[in-house]
Amino acid sequence: MPIIRAHTGIITQINVFTVPEGGQDALIAYLGEAARVASEVPGWLSASLHKSLDGTRVANYAQCEDREAMGRVFQRLNAAGMIDGNKAYGEANPGLYDVVFMLER
Rank of each mutant, 00 (worst) to 15 (best):
I3D: 00
I4C: 10
R5P: 00
R5A: 06
H7Y: 07
G9T: 05
T12R: 07
T12K: 11
Q13N: 10
Q13E: 15
Q13P: 03
I14D: 00
N15G: 01
V16D: 01
F17G: 03
T18Y: 05
V19W: 05
Q24S: 13
D25L: 06
D25I: 05
D25Q: 14
A26N: 12
L27A: 13
I28W: 04
A29H: 03
L31A: 04
L31I: 05
G32N: 08
G32Q: 05
V37I: 15
A38Q: 02
E40W: 02
V41Q: 10
V41E: 09
P42N: 13
P42Y: 07
W44V: 09
S46R: 01
S48W: 03
S48C: 09
L49S: 01
H50E: 01
K51R: 14
L53H: 02
V58D: 03
A59E: 07
A59F: 00
A59L: 10
N60Q: 11
Q63F: 01
C64W: 04
D66I: 06
R67P: 04
E68A: 15
M70L: 14
M70N: 09
G71Y: 07
G71K: 08
V73E: 02
F74C: 07
Q75F: 08
Q75G: 13
Q75E: 14
R76F: 11
L77I: 15
N78K: 13
A79K: 11
A79P: 09
G85F: 11
K87Y: 09
A88D: 11
A88I: 10
A92S: 15
P94W: 11
L96V: 05
D98C: 12
D98P: 02
V99R: 03
L103K: 12
E104V: 13
R105M: 14
R105Y: 12
